[in-house]
Amino acid sequence: MITVFTDLFRQSVAGLRLLLVMTVLLGVGYPTAVWAAGQAFGDRADGSPVRVDGQVVGSRLIGQQFEGDEWFLSRPSANDYDTLASAPSNLGPLSTDLIASIGERRAEVAAREGVDGSAVPPDAVTASGSGLDPHISPAYAALQAPRVAAANGLSLDEVERLVEEHTDGRGLGFLGEPGVNVLELNLAVRRSVEGGD
């Protein structure tokens, strides 16, 4: 028994020394090397910031909360787009709370867009996995386009063109699903309004 503990002690000391060496290599050297090489990809390593007049107004990858008729609205979020608390709702498949909020969201979206509840797409009534989903489905964007066009004094054609322009297609043409980048779309709408003044 004593020899087991002697061996455990001896090997633990070796393990501690190896851990320290590896911490320098893997914990300092590796991330620094990735960072240095990652600079080749410019803004991407820094979170793909979106700038207006040189001022950062967000990241094209991170969703934002919008309120008001002049904006395209993002999906519901379990954390109100708080980047310091990324999270889903974690409500289960039978959750009566979830089913109730889906019903409320459906009614709310239908009233806001002036359509029947059955026309509201799934992403408009569900919270995302991160709470920071930067996209909405093309269907939800199409649903919002008439309201946004009217509130901004733009033609529906113009707004639909902007939606089209800011739709990220499927990766490589078939991976995942298409999504409309809400921040970039809203930015484009605002540019269009300002340009038309």
Binding site: P93, S95, I99, P122, T126, D133, G176
Partner: peptide, 21 residues
């Protein structure tokens, strides 16, 4: 039931991935 209510099992899923991915 929740997915049926929403029209798709998108609660907790990201738009860019969808159900398959």
């Amino acid at each position: 039931p929740a997915a049926q209510a929403a029209g798709a099992a998108m609660e907790g899923k990201e738009t860019r991935f969808g159900e398959w991915a």
